[in-house]
Each structure stands twice: as C-alpha cells, then as structure tokens.
Design a protein around this nucleic acid. Sequence first.
DNA 1: GGGACTCTAGAGCGTTCACTCTAGAGCACT
DNA 2: AGTGCTCTAGAGTGAACGCTCTAGAGTCCC
Lengths: 200, 200
Amino acid sequence: MEQPPTRERLVAATADLFRVSGYNATSVKEIVERAGAPFGSMYHHFPGGKEELGAAAITSSGLAYGELIDLFFGDDVEDLVAATSGFFAGAAWTLTESAYADACPIATVALEVASTNDDLRLAAAAVFDGWIERAAARMVQHGIAERDAPGLARVIIMLLEGAFLLCRTQRSTRALEDAGRAAAAEVERLLAAEGGSHLS
Amino acid sequence: MEQPPTRERLVAATADLFRVSGYNATSVKEIVERAGAPFGSMYHHFPGGKEELGAAAITSSGLAYGELIDLFFGDDVEDLVAATSGFFAGAAWTLTESAYADACPIATVALEVASTNDDLRLAAAAVFDGWIERAAARMVQHGIAERDAPGLARVIIMLLEGAFLLCRTQRSTRALEDAGRAAAAEVERLLAAEGGSHLS
DNA sequence: GGGACTCTAGAGCGTTCACTCTAGAGCACT
DNA sequence: AGTGCTCTAGAGTGAACGCTCTAGAGTCCC
C-alpha cells in the first residue's frame, strides 16, 4: 500500500484538523497521530514548528479549494447565473454530507490569527487573494465587465463565507440558499448592466 | 470611582478578548486580570467555568451589537438603500479605527466551537437569530415585503461577516465597500420588486 | 563495507492551562 | 455582639501544551 510521504501527510492532517477545530484547538500531538508520523519527523520537516506547518496547511488547502472555482465556473459553463446557483448548492451539499464540518478550510484559522500572528494572517490573505483573482477571471470569461469582476468575485466569496458561518452555527442550509439566490441576482444585475452599457 | 460589579466586568473582559483572539486563545488568567477580579470570584459567579462565562459573553455582546441594527435602520430612516450603505460604511470606520480588531464579537468563537461545543454553538446561533429577526423587522418597516425580509436580513449579515473576514485578514476595507454596494443593490432590487408587485 | 546524510522515533523538558481548595473580609439582620 | 451568607483572595494541582534532544534506522555514493 503506497502512501504519500510524511511531509505531505502532515500537511493534509493539519489542514483537516484546522477545518474542523481551527488553529488553537489543534495540538501538535493530534496532528502527528493523525498523520501516522513520529513526533520528531514533524520538527525535521518543519523546523518552525506548529506555525510553519500551519502556514503550509493554509496554503495547501487554499490551493485545493481554489480548484473548485474552476470546476464550477469552467470553460463549459454557458449560463453564469445558473453556475452561480450551482456553486452555492454544491457547497450546501458538501456541508450537510459532512455534518456541517466541511466548509471553508481556512476561515476559522484566519479569524483566530487575524490580530495575533502576522505570518499566518498573510498566508490566509494570499489564499483569499488567489480565490478572488481566479473567480474574477472566470467572471470576465463569462461576460462580466472587467471593471465589475473583482468586486463581484469578492461578493461571491463573502456571501459564501458568511453563509458557512451561519450554516455551521445554526445547523441549517437556509443561509446558503439565501446567499445563492442573492449571488445569482447580483450576477444577473451585472450581466444586464454590461449588456445595457453598449446602448449608452 | 464607581465601577460595575465583578460579574459584569468579567463578562465584558471576556467579550473583549473573544472579539480579538477567539475562545481557545483566551485564557482564564487573562480574563480575570483584565477584569481586575480575583481568580476565585470567577468560579463563584460562573461555576461552569470558562464555558459558562464564554456563553454569557457571547449572549451579552450579541445583544450589545444588535443595538446597532436599530441604530442604523431606526424609525427615522427615510431611504433604506442609503441606510444600508451607511451600515457598511460605519462598520468600515469602526474596523479601521480599531486597527482591524473590532469586527464581529462572536464570529471567531462561533467557528471555533461550531463542531466541538454545542452549548457555545447554540449561544452563538441564538445571537445570529436575534440579529436576523431584528433586521428583518426593520426591513419590513421600511418597505420590504414580509416574504423577502428574513432572506434579505440574512444576506446583509452574511455580507457583513464575510467582509469582516476578508478585511481583517487582508487589512483593507475594500471588501466592506464591495459588500456595502452589493447589499444596497439587493435592497434596491427587493424594494422595486415589492413596488412592482402592486401592478401585477 | 564504510561514511555521510536524511528521516524516523519517542522520552523528557519547562511552561501554561483550566480548575479546586481553604481562608477570611464585608455586610445584613437579629 | 453574634450569626449566616455572599463574595474576595490566591496558592496549589494534575494534565496538556509546544518543543528539544539524543539515538538509531534506512539509503545512496564511493
């Protein structure tokens, strides 16, 4: 049975635990146990300790979840409004399937460290930037004006993050449904604005 | 120099620390030091320990911040769209004034405990419910259809929470500006829908 | 097959954690 | 003045924390 190298198993285990419990509630002991790695190996691969491993986990899961943007807003999308609704519906499905655990991989950590640890804060900021850039490019590809795309991308991410917060604490997907409707409406509005701007 | 009783000082200190650092990074020692209370007093007033005190802090700061909804969407509001923009602008002002520390008092804690502590999770859920109910009532008062109001209230809260997350990790108010614009547009859309529904 | 290097392995370190415990101060009522 | 109750006060406890340290296993090149 082949398995990924220790370093990658450590990062994956950390990312998993961060998603559910955040940074401070995740202990190094828990991480190495889940990764099936000895304690010493962790400090061999990450001399910077928990913080360095945490930064790697943020970056890694940020990249992995970023793929979902290309999945839902890919080249084959014809109706951007429907794709937006589908994006939020997919999030709701994943959330319920995981008993309200699998939402944003970095939001909890990002809030925990926002005022207390600049290295981790910047790692999270880079992930958000990457998502926004990626989503904005897809918006433009599907008919949104260049000038509106970054703002729209940000609004979609914000609605998703806000919905995850409400859904996880309330154990309900209602917020994600409302967020999906609002996001779709905003996309529709900006598509119409772009189409209409040709007339003025 | 009169000062509030010990119990209230403990709750206030806890709420302050939760807002900046969340639940797990806030130690009991830190709380009693900031409150200027002896260690034993804390366990006299809150026999349930850190968890009981945490729940009280969530409820207390939830009520305090809920007042802001009535402040920004009060009886004297004439233009709901402008009031919505003002709400987000106010949040941005507070955020920058506090060096990106004073955002949502319970979001960090809510995410930390969402999958690990049901008592605290439910305390946070009650706060969010209260905010949404309060905001929905104000929306109806200012011309939003009863059927649309809870969803709109939820969207406003989600945009605010998502924006706080982005703004705090990116040290920029851009997300709050985009969120304010999107929220105002959504309010405008639903006001028009309600106005238009009289014709059909 | 010997040496160098990477990685595994886990016992042990000092610190901090949430919490318990006992003692006494302050105050109200009699 | 004495009794009973609320609240203050902080030293002390066992457990868990992140991390360091030394030792040995595995692997590749010469």
